[in-house]
């Protein structure tokens, strides 16, 4: 049998902040088409895990393999364009229009010409329903609109994996739906996603796999249906009973 190659493989990842061990020993693989929800209580290290995968934090120990190659040895810009990130606080470039937000990376990092970058940006902006706002500034948009633009900005780089760190947590309740529905569409379209979320309905209904983190380790990793109906670990059960 030929083993399917992973897009990302995390091996024995550890991260300390001073004496505080935030990630203790994390290993897992991400395959093409996976939609992985990462759940767990506050402070369990979910954001730190995503930030280490994207090298926004330098891992203390361990390796991250991108298609079998040590990501540290790869060109950072290239790796970043393959592994995109959507933040809780949107982080749109405030000095640029919506369109420029989506073209800047393409031009500067992927060296696409202006026309190609714009076409691509508009394609993804229309996918998230924001192409009409192409000339608006981030400051003129609602939270949900900003997050949809941030998603389009990440998609325009043609990433192979998109990391989401609580993309709806900073939103007013009435805007959560519009962002989740975009993410649902992306998942159905086959995009590989790693989503830290407190939206249990998304984790249960949309993702293909759920990782439950507790105190810096992966406590449980498996099929969403199984985890939500019959968690193996007592601490998973305890967490779910608290949150559901």
């Amino acid at each position: 049998m030929i083993e399917k190659q992973s897009i990302l493989e995390i091996r024995h990842l550890k991260k300390d902040f001073g004496t505080h061990q935030v990630l203790k020993d994390i290993s897992f693989s991400v395959f093409g088409g996976d939609v992985i929800s990462i759940i767990g209580s506050s402070g369990s290290g979910k954001s730190t895990l995503l930030r280490c995968i994207n090298f926004l934090e330098e891992p203390t120990e361990g390796t991250i393999l991108y298609r079998g190659k040590d990501a540290e040895t790869l060109n950072r810009a290239e790796y970043h364009s393959k592994v995109g990130m959507v933040f809780q606080s949107f982080n749109l470039f405030a000095n640029m229009s919506v369109l420029a937000n989506c073209t800047a990376g393409q031009k500067l990092v992927l060296h696409r010409d202006g026309k190609e970058a714009e076409d691509k940006a508009l394609y993804f902006l229309s996918k998230v329903g924001m192409d009409a706002y192409r000339n608006a500034r981030p400051g003129q948009l609602s939270g949900g609109q900003k997050q949809r633009v941030a998603i389009a900005r990440a998609l325009a780089m043609d990433p192979e994996v998109l990391l989401f760190d609580e993309p709806t947590s900073a939103l007013d309740p009435e805007m959560v739906g519009e962002v989740l529905s975009v993410m649902r569409t992306l998942a159905e379209g086959g995009l590989t996603m790693l989503v830290v979320t407190h939206e249990m309905s998304f984790a249960r209904d949309v993702s293909s796999r759920v990782i439950f983190m507790d105190q810096g380790v992966i406590a449980e990793d498996g099929d969403p249906h199984e985890i939500f109906t019959a968690p193996k670990q007592p601490r998973t059960r305890e967490f779910l009973s608290r949150i559901l």
Partner: peptide, 26 residues
């Protein structure tokens, strides 16, 4: 806001690119 610089890095911009195109203009 530091987040914008992180977002710039997350799409692959270098320190100089993010300074020149995102941070310094603001």
């Amino acid at each position: 806001d530091k987040g914008q610089k992180e977002a710039a890095h997350a799409i692959g911009m270098t320190h100089w690119q993010s300074m020149l195109h995102v941070v310094l203009p603001q």
